[in-house]
């Protein structure tokens, strides 16, 4: 069986995520697109993961609970976990590391929790897109403590990417994979290609709207690495 994944999707909990990005809308759009496995990665929160996991089970597609963390350097990294308990425990730690800034829904958008039937289940008041007080060099160890893996997001972008912010991947960071956008063109970015040496390039949509969820056009190859293990586990649980 060929495997198609989209491991970076936002729900309506992310202020910039469309209010239509509810659990069932996301998983059913992913299923329509022919994806086998998705990850939910809201900004600094795993608060809608459990609901989306239930919806994914119903829809029969693989689900990985995750988060897109914003580090103290304003670098975005995707964190993926083996189960919702681990994801939520990590999420609680990150919540404490976020500044106490209230969201302004009229500026940033609403931050909506939902249940697994897409019913509203409250609104997050703390602004989730702020930077957590945790350096990119500290994130991998904390994620690992919770049984997960993390990798820098959209490293070919000009904003919030490890390469744009830090100029290069710090020597002490050893990522087994890094994410690039679907628009990434290797020939024009020797810096990105250099960073990707000995490293898996993961192409994900970073969808904030339903129509941005990835197409089934890039096969995910199982290699036995930690990311493959998470995908395999998610597929087993469908």
């Amino acid at each position: 069986m060929k495997i198609y994944c989209d491991l970076h999707i936002h729900s309506c909990l992310s202020p910039c995520g469309d209010d239509d990005m509810t659990p069932n809308n996301i998983v059913n759009m992913a299923r329509l697109k022919g994806l086998n496995c998705i990850a939910l990665t809201d900004h600094n929160s795993c608060g809608n993961c459990r609901a989306t996991q239930l919806a994914a089970r119903q829809a029969g597609i693989g689900f990985i609970p995750g988060m897109e963390i914003n580090t103290s350097e304003d670098i975005h990294a995707v964190c993926l976990f083996p189960d919702c308990d681990s994801a939520e425990a990590f999420s609680a730690e990150i919540y404490r590391l976020l500044p106490n800034t209230k969201n302004k829904p009229e500026v940033f958008g609403r931050q909506l929790y939902t249940d697994w039937l897409d019913n509203p289940a409250g609104e997050e008041e703390k602004l989730l897109i702020n930077a957590a007080a945790l350096s990119i060099t500290q994130v991998p160890a904390l994620v690992k403590q919770h049984g997960g893996i993390c990798f820098p997001a959209h490293i070919d972008k000009d904003a919030n990417s490890i390469l744009a912010v830090l100029g290069s991947v710090p020597a002490e960071c050893h990522f087994s994979c890094m994410e690039v956008t679907p628009r990434y063109q290797p020939e024009s970015r020797p810096d990105v290609e250099a960073a990707l040496q000995n490293c898996r390039a993961v192409v994900s949509s970073d969808a904030h709207y339903l129509w941005d969820i990835a197409e089934a056009d890039r096969e995910f190859i199982l290699t036995g690495d930690e990311l493959s293990q998470l995908v395999q586990k998610a597929l087993k649980n469908t």
Partner: peptide
């Protein structure tokens, strides 16, 4: 504070004021 920019533009012998406290700050 953007190290990719500082790498290209920081003048030699300058006093560099930044809020980027990363190991790469030193490299740059």
């Amino acid at each position: 504070d953007l190290l990719s920019l500082a790498m290209a533009q920081a003048p030699a012998n300058s006093a560099w004021v930044t809020v980027m406290g990363n190991r790469n700050t030193i490299a740059v």
